[in-house]
């Protein structure tokens, strides 16, 4: 089953075409890496897919809803987490879970049960009453990811979730991603760590608003005769005309 379908999705700001007729599909349970240089149009594309920005032209279906017609429905059916915004620092761990579960429409009766389950899964029961700002970054990000999927959405969008996280925590974070994908949650993720691109089932690489490559890491490496994804990325992104943002 396809959970994301983009057909010639385009976004213009005045005369500037930020996203230029991109087309792709993402299957349920897939880990889809969305790569590109700064300024290639990733964020704009992701904002459209999350129902936050209306496409200038083209069509997109996310979680069964048309992005220009039902953006509110999309927001209720996805999870979102980024490095820049994840949780409220001045709230306790359980308060953040309570808040986001409520916003995402988890029934009140279920919230305390899900909170316990979430913390147990992270082996984090002892930190229920800790303020989020007191947690190490790696823990914060793992918690933020779990909170972003507390309502079992069809898709979770992750915008550079592991930036600045220490190497061991970064790997633990990816193990959580695998667990979510095994449960059927589709993971749409951007990253600047090219080793993480290898963990994705398929990867797309945006250059100047277009998707210039889309395939499994294995096939991309073969196609570009590259030893690793870093080399693939450099081959493609070196050709960019646009200034990075």
């Amino acid at each position: 089953m396809k959970v994301i379908t983009a057909e010639n999705l385009t976004k213009k700001f005045g005369s500037f075409t930020a996203v230029d007729h991109i087309s792709f599909e993402v299957e349920q349970g897939e880990i889809f890496g969305f790569l590109g240089a700064n300024g290639a149009g990733k964020t704009t594309a992701m904002r459209m897919l999350c129902g936050l920005s209306k496409p200038t032209s083209g069509k997109g279906m996310v979680a069964g809803f048309e992005i220009s017609k039902n953006p509110e429905k999309i927001k209720a059916n996805i999870g979102y987490m980024s490095q820049k915004f994840s949780m409220y620092e001045d709230l306790k761990v359980w308060e953040n879970i309570r808040l986001f579960a409520g916003i995402y429409g988890v029934p009140d009766k279920e919230i305390s049960h899900r909170t316990d389950e979430l913390l147990k899964n992270l082996q984090f029961e002892g930190q229920k009453d800790a303020l989020v700002k007191s947690l190490p970054l790696g823990w914060k990000q793992k918690l933020a990811f779990s909170v972003a999927i507390v309502h079992e959405p069809k898709i979770v969008f992750l915008d550079e979730p592991t930036g600045g996280v220490d190497p061991a925590a970064r790997r633990q974070f990816w193990e959580l991603i695998y667990q979510a994908a095994d449960r059927g949650i589709t993971v749409f993720v951007t990253t600047h760590y090219m080793d993480e691109a290898e963990y994705c089932n398929r990867v797309s690489i945006m250059v100047d608003g277009r998707i210039d490559a889309l395939n499994s890491p294995q096939n991309l490496k073969q196609q570009y005769d590259a030893a690793n994804m870093d080399e693939v990325f450099h081959r493609l992104a070196r050709g960019a005309k646009r200034n990075s943002d």
């Binding site: 240089a37 700064n38 490095q83 550079e160 930036g163 600047h192 990325f233 992104a237 990075s244």
Partner: peptide, 10 residues
């Protein structure tokens, strides 16, 4: 280089 893509980092 934080948050900077691999090409610009290089």
């Amino acid at each position: 280089t934080t948050g900077v893509d691999p090409v610009s980092r290089k």
